[in-house]
Amino acid sequence: KCNTATCATQRLANFLVHSSNNFGAILSSTNVGSNTY
């Protein structure tokens, strides 16, 4: 594990990016499902 501020910031940034991608995918699939019905 790294405990430097830079490494922690990069890890946090990566986490936010992945979370945003997952959130966007969920919204996209939900919109497609609602449009189908």
Rank of each mutant, 00 (worst) to 15 (best):
S20N: 15
F15L: 11
N14F: 11
C7M: 02
Y37L: 09
S19N: 15
T36V: 09
L27I: 14
T6V: 07
Y37P: 06
A5Y: 07
K1L: 07
N22D: 00
T9V: 06
T30R: 03
T30E: 05
L16N: 12
A8V: 06
S34Y: 12
K1P: 12
S34N: 09
T36L: 14
S34G: 11
G24M: 00
T4L: 08
T36R: 12
G24C: 05
H18I: 15
G33W: 11
T30Y: 11
N21H: 00
T6R: 06
N14S: 05
L12E: 09
R11L: 12
F23K: 00
A5W: 04
T9S: 11
T6F: 10
S20A: 04
S19G: 08
H18V: 15
Q10T: 13
N21P: 07
L27T: 10
S19L: 03
A5G: 11
A25M: 14
S28G: 06
V17E: 01
F23Q: 05
K1M: 12
G33A: 08
A8H: 11
R11S: 13
F15H: 07
F15R: 02
H18W: 04
T4V: 10
S34V: 08
A5F: 07
A13L: 04
N31W: 05
N14T: 11
K1E: 09
L16G: 06
N35L: 09
Y37D: 07
N35T: 09
G24P: 00
R11G: 14
V32L: 07
T9C: 15
V32P: 05
N14H: 04
G24V: 04
N14K: 00
V17L: 06
S29A: 07
T9R: 07
T30N: 13
N22K: 01
T36F: 12
N31H: 12
T36M: 12
N35Q: 12
T36Y: 11
G24F: 00
T30G: 05
T6D: 13
N21A: 02
G33D: 09
A25I: 15
N3F: 00
A25V: 15
S28A: 10
L27R: 03
R11N: 14
N14E: 01
N3D: 12
S20H: 14
F15C: 06
N14D: 03
C7F: 05
V32K: 03
V32A: 02
C7D: 02
L12C: 08
N14A: 05
F23H: 05
F15K: 05
S20C: 06
L12K: 07
K1N: 08
F23M: 06
C2V: 03
C7N: 03
T9Y: 03
N22G: 00
N35S: 11
R11F: 14
N3S: 09
V17W: 05
T30L: 04
A5V: 06
N35E: 06
N22H: 03
S29I: 15
T6N: 12
L12G: 14
Y37A: 09
K1T: 13
L12I: 14
I26M: 01
V32Y: 14
N21C: 04
A13R: 03
R11V: 15
S19M: 08
A8M: 06
T9L: 02
Y37V: 09
L16R: 06
N21I: 08
N14L: 10
N22W: 03
S19H: 09
N3P: 07
S29R: 04
C2W: 02
N35F: 04
R11Y: 13
L12Q: 14
Q10S: 12
A5K: 06
N21E: 01
H18T: 11
Y37R: 10
S28T: 09
S29Y: 13
N14Q: 11
S20P: 00
F23P: 05
G33M: 06
V17T: 01
C2L: 03
R11A: 07
F23T: 05
K1Q: 12
G24Y: 01
S34I: 02
G24D: 02
T6L: 08
L12H: 13
L12N: 14
T4A: 14
N35C: 03
T36I: 08
H18M: 13
S29T: 14
S29L: 11
T6E: 13
T4E: 13
F23C: 00
L27V: 15
N22V: 00
A5N: 12
G24E: 00
S29E: 10
F23N: 07
V32E: 04
T4D: 14
G24I: 06
G33F: 04
S34L: 07
T30W: 01
T36G: 12
A25Y: 12
S29K: 04
I26E: 02
N22I: 05
N3E: 08
H18A: 09
V17D: 02
F23S: 06
F23I: 13
A8D: 11
R11M: 13
T30P: 00
N35A: 09
I26D: 00
Q10E: 08
S28C: 14
I26P: 04
N31I: 04
A8I: 06
S29M: 09
V17P: 04
C2R: 00
S28I: 10
A5T: 10
T6K: 07
Y37K: 08
Q10Y: 13
A13M: 10
S19R: 02
Y37S: 08
N3W: 02
L12Y: 15
G24W: 01
N3M: 05
T9F: 05
T9N: 14
